[in-house]
Design a protein around this nucleic acid. Structure first.
Lengths: 245, 245
DNA sequence: CGAAAGCTTTGACCGAGGTCAATAACAGGC
DNA sequence: GCCTGTTATTGACCTCGGTCAAAGCTTTCG
């Protein structure tokens, strides 16, 4: 049990005041009153790596924000072909007010801690929380932009461009190290296995692996183990992406 | 001039009461007061086929609903590779309150009539139009679902599955003929050229053409000219799509 | 420590879809 | 009707990324 606690990155302190995503999540712009409302109805829930959080078609009873960990949104075909249609990192919102079924499969990639709200009460509260409402629309629009950017990647980019795009995406989302980015170099931990990356990028695991090897041989990245990537020249890697982002 | 008027499908009557998208667009659930507000600030604008409506990065000054015609949302790479990331059909909304630049290129595919609102006034009015606000969130969530479905298509489907999916998408969106769908057969007009379809499906024009030929040879569709498609057995075509939609 | 069960990498081969090029069909203008 | 430019089809060929298979590497756990 002690071991468990040491290994787990789950958050046990559940106060909003110390919440690591307080200023980025759906509650980002909530005022004191709104925060009190949310605080009184929220509850934490933790899932282990690999666990299913929700399945397409399930009744949608709980909305939540990712507090720690990584999860995926995915869509599958009858024969098993699967595409990840969204990465859920800390501060991302899961579920949608006004819908009563789950639209996509949600799966924990690492251990995941969620800050949850029952849907009906949340929807009722929403009317009295204009700042939360606006933030929710804003986040939905961001998700829509991200989805559309990903459509360009899936439809038009080569395998090498896809991998370079993904590494830079993770680099940007893990910018606790903004000095590093300014210095034009980054060290980052990939939150996904080769297999999960393949499912996200519309590739196979073998192609992902080959492209990592190719980027390494071309001196664009250094690998330390299989998950830790060092990018010595961010601009050079960005040049491999093909679009001016 | 008379010829122009006859050829044009542009709407000249601009009254909300007779608007063809009154009950599907962002104003769908507006009450009498809200509708009066909208009516007083809206204005119509028409674009010719092929015209650019807005470019990525432009200042976003006008929000609008498509009243008639078809437009596309697209995203391009430096070397010209392009992916259409959204089809805009009558009732679809263009632009996003709260953003001040255009996120994607918008292009008229056919002649397009838009019902427009200047962004700032619209945003101000929005506060007093809860039904419009809710409808906007709902439509944005629908767009997000559609984008994510398209990610599965782009990332995992074969060329044949992509074409079958597209034909069925158009079939569903042009259901003035629901008796036909029940009868398990549909006749439809493709709103896009082979080239535009290719850009939407992440294929080349040649592959699109070859797949149309293949579906025709397999008896799944009949072509009358290049744009008119007859599907004698909708269920059979749906079986080619690969997922249980 | 060593066995077993993943992951990841690498190699050999193949095929769906892209590229290049030559017709064919069509629409608009006169 | 005929000419012209655009759009669609078809064919020959090639390539990128998928498939199948065999090693390496890591974890994990007894």
């Amino acid at each position: 049990m002690l071991d468990e606690d040491l290994k787990s990155k789950a958050r046990s302190d559940t106060r909003c005041a110390t919440c690591p995503v307080r200023h980025r999540a759906v509650c980002a712009r909530a005022n004191a009153d709104e925060l009190t409302l949310l605080d009184s109805v929220k509850f934490y829930k933790t899932y282990q790596a690999g666990q299913t959080i929700a399945l397409r078609g399930d009744p949608l009873e709980v909305l939540s924000s990712v507090v720690t960990g990584t999860a995926t949104l995915s869509q599958s075909m009858e024969d098993g072909r699967t595409q990840i249609v969204g990465l859920l990192l800390p501060s991302d919102f899961i579920g949608r007010p006004g819908r009563d079924t789950v639209a996509h499969d949600v799966t924990a990639v690492t251990e995941v801690t969620l800050c949850c709200f029952r849907r009906k009460p949340f929807e009722d509260l929403l009317v009295n929380m204009p700042h939360v409402q606006v933030r929710l629309l804003e986040m939905t629009l961001d998700d829509l932009d991200a989805a559309r950017d990903w459509m360009l990647l899936l439809g038009r980019k080569t395998a090498r461009e896809k991998i370079a795009s993904f590494i830079l995406l993770i680099a940007h989302r893990s910018v606790a190290n903004s000095e590093q980015l300014l210095a034009n170099e980054v060290r980052l931990e990939l939150p996904l296995s080769r297999e999960t990356m393949a499912t996200y990028l519309g590739l196979t695991i073998e192609t992902v692996s080959r492209q990592f090897t190719a980027l390494r041989k071309d001196g664009l990245i250094t690998l330390d183990g299989t998950r830790s990537v060092f990018v010595p020249d961010v601009a050079a890697l960005a040049a491999e992406v093909g679009d001016g982002e």
